[in-house]
Amino acid sequence: MEIPYNEELRPDTGLYNAKLGIWLFLASEVMLFGGLFSAYIMLRLSDPNWASYGQDALNVPLATLNTTVLITSSITMVMSWVSLKLNDVKKYKLYMGLTLLCSFGFLIIKYIEYSSKFSHGLFPSTNNFLAVYFVLTGLHMLHVIGGIVVNGYFFGPGLKMWNTEPERFTNRIEVAGLYWHFVDLVWIFLFPALYLL
């Protein structure tokens, strides 16, 4: 059975199905991260020991670099979609490849940060701040890994759809992009909330 509205717009929503689907998923993600943010504010406001938890010991330069890497991956992601709209598969491969490189770069930098924390005996169980820090950044990192899996598929084996259904493939990249920009968006709030404020 063929799934309808992959390319053409559904008359009642005005959208192709996958786009509505990914936005509903992202809405649930807002609730997931929103709940954890809420827990963070709650703990921070009510824990009288908060100032002693060493929040200012986090590595701001590394996190700033990671922010830049993730923002760069967002522009390369959107450019990979633009390239398909312009029928330029070579450029699509280039931009999607760069997006993947940035994603791995983000993970490597995060690995350096985590290793440094662990080597100093700082774990999620150490105190409330580190619990919040590891849960929020860890969950975000899982999302980055999820993005790498999906983008990696579209960079490699999934690309063959371009030859048979180019418009559907372009829509797939737009949907993958919406997810990836959301991952960027979450980091935009995590970075100041955990490292700077």
């Binding site: 807002v30 609730m31 929103g34 709940g35 943010f37 809420s38 827990a39 504010i41 709650m42 406001l45 009510s46």
Partner: peptide, 12 residues
């Protein structure tokens, strides 16, 4: 999201 965001403030 706004409800989640302001809930801890109300609590505090």
């Amino acid at each position: 999201f706004l409800v989640l965001f302001f809930m801890p403030t109300l609590w505090h």
